[in-house]
Structure formats: structure tokens, C-alpha cells
């Protein structure tokens, strides 16, 4: 659309915007859910964990279809949003953010849960006896000891969101400059026989993803160890 700007950079900028928002959303929700699953005991906990893990296993197109059914004009949530708030998510970049968030969510909450479970509960009890309230204990003890695992998951989620294709296409379509992200632009370029565009898009995507993985790899080893000294003398 905006012919003034190179479509490749437009697609990259859109991809980064969508992936950035999706990462922020999954980071907050994934950390909260990971903590909940690690620390609270409630019925159907395992079922909830499995359901939330589903996006890793399900084909993105199936997820996209579920989202479409739910968020579309005639979907129960979509209709409500449209009638009450005048919000339409289909064929918008915000819709792409939702698709990317759902797909990337397990990559954050799973490592977050593991990281929280690795934090010694006795440290939280010690903080309690030292007079700190629950929320402050979370921010001063639990989170600092778990953040490495959460951050590693966050970077993976960013990479996954950046590469999202199937669900995004179902929800947001492929409108250049609006919802056409990098990975979708690659598909469109190949379809249209624009090999030079496709090559550049592929190169850029690869560089960004490798960078993110390198960063995640540097954080990964400390994920479970959480610097707690485990020696017995």
C-alpha cells in the first residue's frame, strides 16, 4: 500500500510490532499463570496445564479457526465486543497480536512454572517470618530467583510470535502494510514469483530469529539452577 516505503521493511516493522505486543502480553499472563500452577493447589490443575499447552501441539490453522469462531463477527466474544465496545479484531493487526499471543503462550508459562517450582519454598517462609507480605515476597524473593527461566521463555515466545503464520493468516489475513507480517509476506512473494523479495525477507527473518535464539541460549543454563547453593558441606 504505502509504496513509498520498501514493503520488506514495512513487513519487518509490522512483524516486530505484533511480536513485541504478543511477547508483552504472554510475559505478564504467562508469569502469572506459571506462578499459579506452581504454587496453588486446586482441582483440575493438570487439565488446565494441558489445555494451555495445546497451542504447541495443535496445527496453527486449527487454532486460527478456533479463534475465528470465537472472535468473528458472529462468534460469541466477537459479537459481544462489536456490540458493546465497537471493537472488531478480524483483519486487524490487533487480531494478529492475539493469534501470536495464543500460539506463544505455552512457551512462557511452561518455563515460568518450572522456574517457580525450583524456588525453595523455605526462602519464602523465611521472608514471611522477617515480616514481608506476600506480594512483596514475590517481587523481592521469588521473581528474582525465577526470572532467568521466565526470560528464556520470553525470548522463545518472541521468536515464535515473529514466525507465526497459520493462525495469523486465518484471523488477520494478508493486507500489505496492515496485517501482512514477514512470514506471510514470504509466502505471498513466493506465490507471486518475486524471488528477490522472498530472498531478502527470508534472510532478515533468519537473522532476527538466530539472534533471539542466541540470546535465549545464554540464559537457558541457569533456568533451573537459580544460583541456589545446593551443597551439603
Amino acid at each position: 500500500m504505502s509504496a513509498a516505503m520498501d514493503p520488506v521493511w514495512t513487513a519487518l516493522a509490522l512483524s516486530l510490532k505484533v511480536a513485541g505486543w504478543a511477547t508483552a502480553i504472554t510475559l505478564v499472563l504467562g508469569t502469572a499463570v506459571g506462578y499459579m500452577l506452581a504454587r496453588w493447589r486446586f482441582p483440575l490443575r493438570d487439565l488446565l496445564d494441558s489445555l494451555l499447552t495445546l497451542p504447541i501441539v495443535l496445527p496453527p490453522t486449527v487454532l486460527g479457526y478456533y479463534l475465528l469462531v470465537m472472535l468473528g463477527r458472529r462468534g460469541w466474544l466477537g459479537a459481544w465486543l462489536h456490540d458493546n465496545l465497537g471493537i472488531n479484531l478480524i483483519f486487524t493487526w490487533q487480531g494478529a497480536v492475539i493469534a501470536a499471543s495464543v500460539v506463544a503462550f505455552p512457551l512462557v508459562f511452561k518455563p515460568a512454572r518450572a522456574a517457580f517450582e525450583a524456588v525453595d519454598g523455605q526462602l519464602e517462609q523465611a521472608a514471611q517470618v522477617l515480616g514481608l507480605s506476600g506480594a512483596k515476597i514475590f517481587f523481592r524473593v521469588t521473581l528474582p530467583l525465577a526470572w532467568r527461566g521466565i526470560l528464556a521463555g520470553m525470548l522463545l515466545a518472541f521468536a515464535r510470535a515473529l514466525g507465526e503464520f497459520g493462525a495469523t493468516l486465518m484471523i488477520a489475513g494478508s493486507i500489505p502494510g496492515h496485517t501482512q507480517t514477514l512470514s506471510i509476506a514470504v509466502y505471498e512473494a513466493v506465490q507471486a514469483g518475486q524471488d528477490d523479495v522472498a530472498n531478502r525477507l527470508v534472510l532478515i527473518t533468519s537473522v532476527v530469529c538466530v539472534t533471539v535464539l542466541l540470546a535465549a541460549g545464554r540464559l537457558m543454563p541457569g533456568q533451573v539452577a537459580n544460583r541456589r547453593d545446593g551443597d551439603r558441606g
Binding site: L123, Q125, A127, V141, L145
Partner: peptide
């Protein structure tokens, strides 16, 4: 004051 067996010092 509660002293845990392994002291529960904050490792970070």
C-alpha cells in the same frame, strides 16, 4: 526469629 536448618539465606 526462625532459623532454618540450612539457614535459608537469600541466594541472590
Amino acid at each position: 526469629a526462625f532459623l532454618f536448618q540450612d539457614y535459608a539465606l537469600f541466594p541472590h
